[in-house]
Protein backbone atom coordinates (compact mmCIF):
# COMPACT_ATOMS: atom_id res chain seq x y z
CA UNK A 1 0.00 0.00 0.00
CA UNK A 2 2.00 2.94 -1.27
CA UNK A 3 1.03 6.60 -1.27
CA UNK A 4 -2.40 7.85 -0.29
CA UNK A 5 -5.00 5.70 -2.04
CA UNK A 6 -8.00 7.62 -0.73
CA UNK A 7 -9.66 10.57 -2.49
CA UNK A 8 -10.10 13.83 -0.52
CA UNK A 9 -12.38 13.41 2.49
CA UNK A 10 -15.93 14.71 1.81
CA UNK A 11 -16.94 17.45 4.27
CA UNK A 12 -19.80 15.25 5.54
CA UNK A 13 -17.21 12.79 6.92
CA UNK A 14 -15.35 15.29 9.08
CA UNK A 15 -16.28 13.22 12.16
CA UNK A 16 -13.84 10.48 11.10
CA UNK A 17 -11.07 12.74 9.84
CA UNK A 18 -8.84 12.12 12.87
CA UNK A 19 -9.53 8.38 12.96
CA UNK A 20 -8.40 8.15 9.33
CA UNK A 21 -5.31 10.23 10.11
CA UNK A 22 -4.51 7.85 12.98
CA UNK A 23 -4.80 4.97 10.48
CA UNK A 24 -2.27 6.62 8.17
CA UNK A 25 0.07 7.32 11.10
CA UNK A 26 0.00 3.63 12.06
CA UNK A 27 0.18 2.16 8.53
CA UNK A 28 3.74 0.85 9.04
CA UNK A 29 4.06 0.92 12.83
CA UNK A 30 0.94 -1.11 13.59
CA UNK A 31 -1.21 -2.15 10.60
CA UNK A 32 -3.79 -3.75 12.92
CA UNK A 33 -4.51 -0.34 14.45
CA UNK A 34 -4.63 1.19 10.95
CA UNK A 35 -7.09 -1.48 9.80
CA UNK A 36 -9.55 -1.07 12.68
CA UNK A 37 -9.38 2.75 12.54
CA UNK A 38 -10.44 2.47 8.88
CA UNK A 39 -13.13 -0.09 9.69
CA UNK A 40 -14.56 2.24 12.33
CA UNK A 41 -14.42 5.15 9.86
CA UNK A 42 -16.17 3.03 7.22
CA UNK A 43 -19.03 2.07 9.54
CA UNK A 44 -19.44 5.57 10.92
CA UNK A 45 -19.26 7.27 7.52
CA UNK A 46 -21.73 4.80 5.95
CA UNK A 47 -24.26 5.80 8.60
CA UNK A 48 -23.71 9.49 7.78
CA UNK A 49 -24.10 9.37 3.99
CA UNK A 50 -23.67 6.51 1.54
CA UNK A 51 -25.85 7.94 -1.21
CA UNK A 52 -24.43 11.23 -2.48
CA UNK A 53 -21.88 10.85 -5.26
CA UNK A 54 -18.79 12.16 -3.48
CA UNK A 55 -19.54 10.26 -0.26
CA UNK A 56 -20.28 7.00 -2.05
CA UNK A 57 -17.14 7.39 -4.16
CA UNK A 58 -15.07 7.85 -1.03
CA UNK A 59 -16.70 4.88 0.73
CA UNK A 60 -16.01 2.58 -2.23
CA UNK A 61 -12.31 3.53 -2.18
CA UNK A 62 -12.15 3.05 1.58
CA UNK A 63 -13.79 -0.37 1.22
CA UNK A 64 -11.30 -1.31 -1.53
CA UNK A 65 -8.49 -0.34 0.82
CA UNK A 66 -9.92 -2.37 3.72
CA UNK A 67 -10.32 -5.46 1.52
CA UNK A 68 -6.78 -5.02 0.25
CA UNK A 69 -5.43 -4.72 3.82
CA UNK A 70 -7.37 -7.77 4.93
CA UNK A 71 -5.84 -9.81 2.09
CA UNK A 72 -2.34 -8.55 2.85
CA UNK A 73 -2.72 -9.27 6.56
CA UNK A 74 -4.22 -12.77 6.24
CA UNK A 75 -1.56 -14.27 8.50
CA UNK A 76 -2.32 -11.86 11.35
CA UNK A 77 -4.64 -13.23 14.06
CA UNK A 78 -5.80 -9.75 15.12
CA UNK A 79 -7.19 -9.25 11.60
CA UNK A 80 -8.73 -12.67 10.94
CA UNK A 81 -10.16 -12.96 14.47
CA UNK A 82 -11.99 -9.90 15.74
CA UNK A 83 -11.82 -11.04 19.37
CA UNK A 84 -8.02 -10.92 19.10
CA UNK A 85 -8.37 -7.64 17.20
CA UNK A 86 -10.46 -6.11 19.96
CA UNK A 87 -7.89 -7.09 22.60
CA UNK A 88 -5.12 -5.60 20.43
CA UNK A 89 -6.86 -2.24 19.99
CA UNK A 90 -7.93 -2.08 23.65
CA UNK A 91 -4.44 -2.88 24.95
CA UNK A 92 -2.88 -0.35 22.62
CA UNK A 93 -5.36 2.37 23.66
CA UNK A 94 -4.85 1.65 27.36
CA UNK A 95 -1.05 1.66 26.97
CA UNK A 96 -1.21 5.07 25.26
CA UNK A 97 -3.57 6.33 27.96
CA UNK A 98 -1.23 5.13 30.74
CA UNK A 99 1.78 6.69 29.06
CA UNK A 100 0.00 10.05 28.86
CA UNK A 101 -1.47 9.75 32.35
CA UNK A 102 1.89 8.87 33.94
CA UNK A 103 3.53 11.85 32.27
CA UNK A 104 0.67 14.10 33.28
CA UNK A 105 0.86 13.00 36.93
CA UNK A 106 4.65 13.45 36.88
CA UNK A 107 4.15 17.03 35.71
CA UNK A 108 5.44 16.46 32.16
CA UNK A 109 3.34 18.45 29.71
CA UNK A 110 4.14 18.51 26.00
CA UNK A 111 2.67 17.84 22.59
CA UNK A 112 3.42 14.10 22.88
CA UNK A 113 1.27 13.86 26.01
CA UNK A 114 -1.56 15.78 24.29
CA UNK A 115 -1.34 13.54 21.24
CA UNK A 116 -1.24 10.36 23.31
CA UNK A 117 -4.36 11.33 25.27
CA UNK A 118 -6.11 12.32 22.05
CA UNK A 119 -5.13 9.21 20.09
CA UNK A 120 -6.20 7.03 23.04
CA UNK A 121 -9.61 8.73 22.99
CA UNK A 122 -9.94 8.06 19.24
CA UNK A 123 -9.07 4.39 19.75
CA UNK A 124 -11.73 4.11 22.45
CA UNK A 125 -14.14 5.27 19.69
CA UNK A 126 -12.73 2.59 17.37
CA UNK A 127 -13.54 -0.11 19.96
CA UNK A 128 -17.21 0.51 19.16
CA UNK A 129 -16.80 -1.61 16.00
CA UNK A 130 -16.77 -4.63 18.34
CA UNK A 131 -19.92 -3.59 20.18
CA UNK A 132 -20.91 -1.28 22.98
CA UNK A 133 -17.93 -0.15 25.05
CA UNK A 134 -17.87 -0.58 28.83
CA UNK A 135 -18.62 2.18 31.36
CA UNK A 136 -14.99 2.06 32.40
CA UNK A 137 -13.72 2.65 28.87
CA UNK A 138 -16.29 5.42 28.38
CA UNK A 139 -14.83 7.16 31.45
CA UNK A 140 -11.31 6.71 30.08
CA UNK A 141 -12.44 8.19 26.75
CA UNK A 142 -14.08 11.20 28.34
CA UNK A 143 -11.08 11.85 30.58
CA UNK A 144 -8.55 11.42 27.73
CA UNK A 145 -10.49 13.77 25.44
CA UNK A 146 -10.84 16.40 28.15
CA UNK A 147 -7.19 16.13 29.23
CA UNK A 148 -5.85 16.43 25.68
CA UNK A 149 -7.95 19.56 25.08
CA UNK A 150 -7.02 21.05 28.45
CA UNK A 151 -3.25 20.48 28.17
CA UNK A 152 -3.31 21.62 24.54
CA UNK A 153 -5.01 24.83 25.60
CA UNK A 154 -2.55 25.42 28.45
CA UNK A 155 0.44 24.88 26.15
CA UNK A 156 -1.06 27.29 23.63
CA UNK A 157 -1.57 29.97 26.27
CA UNK A 158 1.79 29.30 27.92
CA UNK A 159 0.11 28.32 31.20
CA UNK A 160 1.05 25.44 33.47
CA UNK A 161 -1.66 22.76 33.69
CA UNK A 162 -2.94 22.11 37.22
Amino acid sequence: AAGSPLPPLPAAFKAVQHHLKTATDHEKRDPVIAYYCRLYSMQTAMAIDSKSNDCRGFLIKLMDLLEQMKTQLQGTDAITNEVVGQAHVENYALRLFSFADNNDRAGTFNKTVVKSFYTASLLFDVLQVFGEISEDLLKHRKYARWKSAYIHDCLRKGETPI
Binding site: L39, M42, Q43, M46, S50, K51, R56, L59, I60, M63, L66, E67, K70, T80, E82
Partner: peptide, 27 residues
Amino acid sequence: TSTIGTPSTASEQQDELSQRLAQLRQM
Protein backbone atom coordinates in the same frame (compact mmCIF):
# COMPACT_ATOMS: atom_id res chain seq x y z
CA THR B 1 -45.70 3.72 -9.30
CA SER B 2 -43.19 5.15 -11.80
CA THR B 3 -41.05 6.65 -9.00
CA ILE B 4 -40.43 3.31 -7.26
CA GLY B 5 -37.35 2.58 -9.34
CA THR B 6 -35.25 5.52 -8.14
CA PRO B 7 -35.06 4.91 -4.40
CA SER B 8 -34.45 1.19 -4.95
CA THR B 9 -31.34 2.05 -6.99
CA ALA B 10 -29.97 4.09 -4.10
CA SER B 11 -30.72 1.35 -1.60
CA GLU B 12 -29.11 -1.26 -3.86
CA GLN B 13 -25.96 0.83 -3.87
CA GLN B 14 -26.08 1.04 -0.09
CA ASP B 15 -26.74 -2.70 0.11
CA GLU B 16 -23.68 -3.44 -1.96
CA LEU B 17 -21.48 -1.57 0.50
CA SER B 18 -23.22 -3.21 3.46
CA GLN B 19 -22.69 -6.64 1.90
CA ARG B 20 -19.03 -5.97 1.27
CA LEU B 21 -18.67 -4.77 4.86
CA ALA B 22 -20.37 -7.90 6.20
CA GLN B 23 -18.14 -10.11 4.02
CA LEU B 24 -15.05 -8.25 5.13
CA ARG B 25 -15.87 -8.98 8.74
CA GLN B 26 -16.74 -12.63 8.09
CA MET B 27 -13.54 -13.81 6.39
